Simulated scan of single mutants.
Amino acid sequence: MEDRQINPLMKSALEYGPILGFFVAYLWLKDRVFTIGGTEYEGFIVVTALFIPIFLIAMALQWRLTGHLSKMQIVTAVLIVVFGGLSVWLNDERFFKMKPTLIYLLFGGALAVGLMRGQSWLQVVMEGLMPLQPEGWMILTKRVMLLFFALAAANEIIWRTMSTETWVYFKTFGLPLSVFAFFIFQGGLFKAHGIEEDEEETGDAS
């Protein structure tokens, strides 16, 4: 199936809608306890159980509309199903809270392996979005690797030392805003190592 472009608003809705839905549902149900099959479940666990199929449906729609899912999206989906499922099955919210830690450790570790091989695996994923010279990709990859490890550490600290509500705010807003701010502050790198359109055309012509 060929990759297809979809409306950016639709793409954002499919990517962030389930996360925002999780946040709103948590605020609504956080203080409630549900008895299901003789077992009591706190609102967080119930919201997690609802989030998993909604996330998978949104991902399936994105694949149906675009014909493409990134490896990062697939890995994220697997971890959501595994650790969200464990939280629901064992009635233990800690598993779902660990998920961001493992995601960032896996992605950071993958970038580290690539760097040790002298390769920028970030370039393979993002080259179409940010045309950079090879040296620029290596620098950016090192910085993104460190960012992922820092976010993994931050997630561990927050879920282990703070309230569930604080963690939900951090997961919903803190993590995405941290990544957004990180790339905003890479302006100097993009300016120093970016490839201009005329350079790309010259390279293609050769």
Results as ranks from 00 to 15, higher is better:
1 M>P: 10
4 R>D: 07
4 R>I: 04
5 Q>V: 15
6 I>L: 07
10 M>C: 06
10 M>K: 07
11 K>C: 12
12 S>Q: 12
13 A>I: 10
13 A>S: 08
15 E>G: 00
17 G>F: 09
17 G>D: 02
22 F>G: 08
25 A>F: 08
28 W>H: 13
29 L>W: 15
31 D>W: 12
32 R>T: 10
33 V>R: 09
34 F>Y: 08
35 T>A: 14
36 I>P: 03
37 G>N: 13
38 G>H: 05
38 G>R: 04
40 E>C: 11
41 Y>F: 08
42 E>A: 10
43 G>W: 04
44 F>P: 01
44 F>E: 00
44 F>S: 01
44 F>L: 04
45 I>N: 00
47 V>M: 09
49 A>K: 04
50 L>K: 11
52 I>N: 00
52 I>L: 07
54 I>N: 14
55 F>L: 11
59 M>A: 11
60 A>C: 02
60 A>T: 06
61 L>W: 01
62 Q>C: 08
63 W>D: 10
64 R>M: 12
65 L>H: 11
65 L>I: 11
65 L>S: 14
66 T>G: 05
66 T>P: 08
67 G>P: 03
70 S>R: 02
71 K>N: 13
75 V>G: 04
76 T>F: 00
80 I>C: 03
81 V>M: 12
81 V>G: 08
82 V>T: 13
83 F>T: 03
83 F>W: 03
87 S>V: 05
93 E>P: 07
93 E>C: 00
94 R>I: 09
94 R>L: 09
95 F>T: 03
96 F>K: 06
96 F>Q: 02
100 P>A: 13
101 T>N: 10
101 T>Y: 11
109 G>I: 02
109 G>H: 07
110 A>K: 14
112 A>Y: 14
114 G>C: 09
114 G>Q: 06
114 G>I: 07
115 L>H: 03
118 G>N: 07
119 Q>G: 03
120 S>T: 06
121 W>I: 10
123 Q>K: 15
125 V>Y: 10
134 P>W: 12
136 G>R: 01
139 I>P: 10
139 I>M: 13
140 L>G: 01
143 R>E: 05
144 V>E: 02
147 L>D: 00
148 F>M: 09
149 F>H: 06
151 L>C: 01
153 A>G: 05
153 A>K: 06
154 A>C: 02
154 A>V: 01
155 N>I: 00
155 N>P: 04
156 E>V: 03
157 I>N: 04
157 I>S: 05
158 I>S: 06
158 I>W: 03
159 W>C: 00
160 R>A: 04
161 T>A: 14
161 T>D: 12
162 M>H: 15
163 S>M: 00
165 E>C: 05
166 T>P: 01
167 W>V: 05
169 Y>V: 01
169 Y>W: 07
170 F>L: 06
170 F>S: 01
172 T>A: 08
172 T>W: 04
174 G>N: 02
175 L>H: 06
175 L>G: 04
180 F>P: 02
181 A>Q: 11
181 A>D: 10
182 F>R: 06
184 I>E: 05
194 G>D: 01
201 E>P: 07
204 D>L: 12
205 A>S: 14
206 S>M: 13
